[in-house]
Design a binder for these strands. Sequence first.
DNA 1: CAAACGTGGGT
DNA 2: TACCCAAGTTT
Length: 333
Amino acid sequence: MQWQTQHGRHDLPWQQSPSAYSVHVSEIMLQQTQVSTVIPYFERWMQRFPSLDALASASEDDVMAQWQGLGYYSRARNLRKAAAHVIAEHGGEYPDCLQALQAIPGVGRYTAGAIRSFALQQYGPIVDGNVKRLYARLFGIDGEPNSSAFNRTLWQLAEQLTPHNASHIYSQGVLDLGATVCTKSQPKCSECPVQSECVAHATGRIEQLPNPKKKREKPFRVGHFSWHQPNQHIHLVKRSSPGIWGGLWCLPELPDAPKDAELAGEFIHQFTHYTLHAKVWRASTPQHLSVKDDNSVGYLATQLFDLNQLDQTGLPTPIKQFIQDRIALKRHT
DNA sequence: CAAACGTGGGT
DNA sequence: TACCCAAGTTT
């Protein structure tokens, strides 16, 4: 806690006059996403949706457009649902017990602890990637990453070590220590306040802890999309959720390559769990059919968008990129 | 419990 | 280039 006060981070946007709402928003955005990526999104979000009420009364399309590019879009859909939930179930005031916090859509054990700590300044243990790395090294914990046994051990440590007074300073401390000193590669052990107590440092196992995750092979998938562009408009469909890019507007996805169609373009996109080879086919008529997640075909909301106002529409990043590249290309030829 | 769920930064 | 993985949650 002393280290946190002297060397921790204090100037992040969500640390300035934090409310339960702003802490909630920042914590959801920060899930699996780096601080530097989140900062501009957080600032725009708080401008556009400054309060729980503003968010609850916004349309899903508005919310998705603000989230566009951040990824893991269920976070945005859940955040909007969460605003309605807190208003309906708690009269617009965040609950303070961990169990009630975890009942909020999109809020799991980590985020519940973070809201307790950072917004309510109450006892709120947290375990995230930073904390796992820090504790695994400090206490020399081997174990399959993300196994229940490994997680159980870490949460138990967090619950024991987190103080009941000024919990927020401790929680921010372990977060910042993991993020800035006990880093994945080339940790700054000479700057670490607990170096003398660190099992991994004493036994020369910094590089081995936490244990590496076993990697799975990444499948390769082909996706077919249709391109229908009548006079400066582009035909898009709203994707269903759950499923990849759920809630975003996208080129209609086809079950197969259409017969006798002309290829408008193609691109490769890397997801965490698979590689997508997208082929985009010219269509003279709009395609209302779309492939759903389970490979079934359904009808989705469909709309023509002015090519000049795609900025205010939530599209998957590679699809938006493809459209913009193609428009620019056409302008030159 | 494994797998789904996005995108981009760092080495 | 090819990985790893980042303030995780849900199914």
